[in-house]
Design a protein around this nucleic acid. Structure first.
Lengths: 116, 116
DNA sequence: CGTGATGTTCGATAAGTAGCGAACATCTGT
DNA sequence: ACAGATGTTCGCTACTTATCGAACATCACG
């Protein structure tokens, strides 16, 4: 159901983004996986929540998407019954240039079997 | 007292650093302040814990320094009665190029009175 | 040797966070 | 109108985290 069609979703403005909030959002493996997935899409592309094959239940996923949105990492938009997610590339690159690239490139996991 | 002169302090190897652990370490305002302070020193320079004018008690500071060390953000070395802290610039720049610069440049706080 | 300075550790508390399942809401089809 | 798909919300539990004060350890110094 996504949500009541009115009362828009809360997104912090670009100016309101903070390093600590964004860092905290990226410090969870599940959320980082979401960001990595979105980051490998063409700029501006979006995906509904259901297309992320995450290892946690729906309610937990919902919480993670909300955390990312409230930290200003992703943008969410309701389209019919689905909630579409996209990276706030422009805003993040403006406020924290390079951070997103790092997150996407590294994903998680220590450097070891970094096989080509 | 810093610590028993033997049994060295635990520092993760460069290869063992993870994005989530480092992000988590940087996501606390007190810890970020420590990193910012160290980051404004000349490369390689170190400071004892006591020289950071932090708004929390000594025991809390101790915990924060340990968190940063265990995440691989800082290096700690005992010198007499003081514990010297320095940034692991080389390792961080290798694993997460640009991340440290961002943290240091931004500190925390939303963009607003970013005068000059 | 005692004292002071510098830090750590321990135990406790309070607050936050991730996780789950069940129930609910909304839209799309049929 | 009903059924299915997609998500959210709520209540609960378990774990982690930030914080503090008190006690302790180590070193340096008079």
């Amino acid at each position: 159901m996504a949500s009541r069609q009115s009362h828009e979703l809360a997104h912090p403005s670009r100016a309101a983004l903070t390093f600590t909030a964004v860092s905290a959002a990226l410090s969870d493996p599940t959320r980082l996986a979401i960001v990595v997935r979105l980051g490998r899409l063409a700029p501006g592309d979006e995906l509904p929540c259901a297309t992320f094959a995450l290892s946690v239940t729906k309610s937990t996923q919902s919480a993670h998407f909300r955390t990312l949105r409230e930290a200003g990492v992703i943008r969410q938009r309701d389209e019919g019954t689905r909630r579409m997610n996209s990276l706030r590339r422009d805003d993040l690159d403006d406020r924290f240039p390079g951070l997103l690239n790092l997150a996407i490139a590294q994903g998680d996991a220590p450097r070891s079997g970094r096989r080509r």
